[in-house]
Simulated scan of single mutants.
Amino acid sequence: MLQRVLLWLTAFLLATVAATTVHAQDADLSITKTDGVTTAVPGGSVTYTITASNAGPSNAPGATVADTFPAVLTGTWTCVGAGGGTCTAAGSGNINDSVNLPAGGSVTYTVSATINGSATGTLTNTATVTSAVNDPVPANNSATDSDTLTPQADLSITKTDG
């Protein structure tokens, strides 16, 4: 009798543990960023398109899209969600936005930025997406766009015989 009770108790406990085991959620987030050019002019402007997506299988509520602009950029942005993705509609300066990315959803930011006229070298800008949900492929959670800055002179001359 005791053996039967122990067998039943063991089976019950194993079934209870199996029924209450929490399965980890995975959400394959990714982000892309481009301005569509490889060179930019100091004093001019650039327009970046940043898209954060969730390939699933789980939802990623409360994910964060972030982009800290280099000091030579001053910008404003807008955002539109697709496939159930939601984000803040617009802002200015750096992006640090809490977004909801359901499986199959995305958010797309359009950044309009002015480049400081004294900027030199390479304009490099990185955007990232992060979440508390486990991401099995974290290598695609950041994207960088780089442009060679090519200063251009706007010269003119006038001559009069006075």
Results as ranks from 00 to 15, higher is better:
T130C: 02
I115Y: 04
T78W: 06
N59F: 01
Y109N: 08
T47H: 04
T148I: 10
L123F: 10
A103V: 03
T78E: 09
T120C: 01
A143L: 01
G105W: 05
S45C: 01
V46M: 01
F69D: 08
I115E: 06
D147N: 15
S45D: 15
P102N: 09
N141I: 09
S131C: 11
P61Y: 11
G117S: 15
V65K: 13
S45H: 07
A90Y: 10
S92V: 10
S106C: 09
T49K: 08
V129A: 10
S58A: 15
V65D: 03
A139G: 00
I95F: 11
A55R: 12
N116E: 00
T49E: 04
P136C: 00
C79D: 02
F69M: 15
G105T: 11
S131W: 10
N96I: 02
Q152V: 13
P61I: 13
G62L: 04
V107G: 02
V72S: 15
A119K: 15
S106R: 14
P57F: 03
T130V: 12
S118T: 03
T110N: 02
N141H: 05
P102E: 09
A71V: 08
N94T: 09
T78P: 12
I95D: 07
S92H: 08
G62D: 03
G105Q: 10
D135P: 12
N116F: 00
T51F: 05
T150K: 04
I95M: 00
A127M: 06
G105V: 08
N141M: 07
V80T: 14
T86Q: 14
V133I: 14
G121S: 06
D145A: 14
T74R: 08
V129S: 03
Y48E: 10
D67T: 07
G83D: 09
S106G: 07
N116C: 00
P57A: 04
D135F: 04
P70M: 00
A52D: 10
A89V: 15
C79V: 08
T51I: 12
I50W: 07
T114D: 15
V111G: 07
T130F: 12
G93T: 13
P57L: 06
A90V: 11
A139K: 11
S92A: 15
C79L: 05
L73T: 09
G81V: 07
P70Y: 01
F69Y: 11
G104D: 10
P70V: 00
S146A: 13
T47L: 08
L73Y: 09
I115A: 00
A139D: 14
I50S: 05
G56E: 03
P61N: 13
T74E: 06
S118C: 00
P57H: 03
S53M: 11
A52T: 09
A60S: 15
P138D: 11
T49F: 10
P151F: 00
G121I: 05
T128S: 15
I115C: 07
V111Q: 00
G85M: 07
A89R: 11
G104I: 04
T130P: 12
T88D: 08
N140Q: 07
T64R: 14
G44T: 03
A66N: 02
P57N: 03
Y109G: 08
T51E: 14
